[in-house]
Simulated assay, not measured.
Amino acid sequence: MAYSVHVEESIDIAAPPEDVYDVIVDVARWGRFSPECTGASLPHHDGPLGVGSTFSGHNRRGAIRRWRTHCTVTAAEPGRQFSFDTAAVGLAIATWSYHLAPLDGGRGTRLTQVWHDNRGQLMKTIAVIVSGIRDRGTHNRASIQITQQRLKAHFEGQPADNHSR
């Protein structure tokens, strides 16, 4: 029986939603925060990412496992939401979404990060071979929590709990 995995985690950050959004859409520099994504390349792109923009996500697990994903932006609302679909070898992987809600009169942000698994059985098999991760939902929940703690530390000037890649 096929089922869909959906992971959702939230964190409160002492920074305005617009500032948090600006860091999230700077996909080339995601490696500062993510334990798996090392960054992205944006070929033929000028200006802010908008709906329909594409980029390549660069990922790493350990010293040996590396892979890229093709990403297409599906929502880009400054200070509110950023979402994109990922694929590889022409097969769907996931939808990533970042929802931002103002707190404290706009001085803070509740960041909700969502990962929704869009993989079919073939991509699930390929993904285990490429990444070595069998339980992607559990893995991504832990990765999201690390990423959010690092984002919070970035904005609040706290030391980050830097788990290794």
Score class of each variant (00 low, 15 high):
V27M: 14
S164L: 13
E156S: 09
I11V: 08
G157I: 11
Q148D: 07
D26I: 03
D104M: 09
Q81G: 06
H58C: 10
A14M: 00
F84C: 06
G79T: 04
D46P: 07
A2L: 03
H154R: 04
E8D: 04
G105M: 08
G50Q: 05
Y3A: 13
V7F: 00
S4R: 15
R165T: 08
G132E: 04
H163N: 15
H44Q: 06
H44S: 06
D26R: 00
V7T: 03
A153I: 12
H58Q: 14
P35N: 06
W115Q: 01
T112E: 14
G39P: 02
G120S: 04
V128S: 00
V130S: 01
V7N: 00
H139R: 09
T112H: 12
L42K: 09
R66P: 01
L100I: 14
Y98A: 13
P48N: 01
I144G: 01
A40M: 05
P48R: 06
I126N: 05
S164T: 13
L49N: 00
A94C: 12
A142F: 02
I24Y: 09
H163D: 15
T38W: 05
A87P: 10
A76G: 11
I24L: 09
W67P: 02
A142M: 03
I126H: 01
P78H: 02
P78R: 01
G120I: 05
R165S: 13
R32D: 07
H70I: 02
V128N: 06
A92C: 07
N118I: 09
I129H: 10
G31Q: 06
S164Y: 13
G106R: 07
C37P: 00
A153P: 10
R136F: 09
G90P: 10
T72S: 09
T125F: 15
G57W: 00
S56I: 05
T147D: 02
Q145I: 11
L42P: 03
Q113C: 12
E8G: 04
K152M: 08
I93N: 02
V89K: 10
V73C: 02
R80V: 03
Q149Y: 11
D161A: 12
T38N: 00
T138I: 03
I11S: 02
V114K: 09
A94W: 08
H58D: 12
W30M: 10
V73Y: 01
R150Y: 05
H116T: 13
S83Q: 05
T38M: 03
G31T: 11
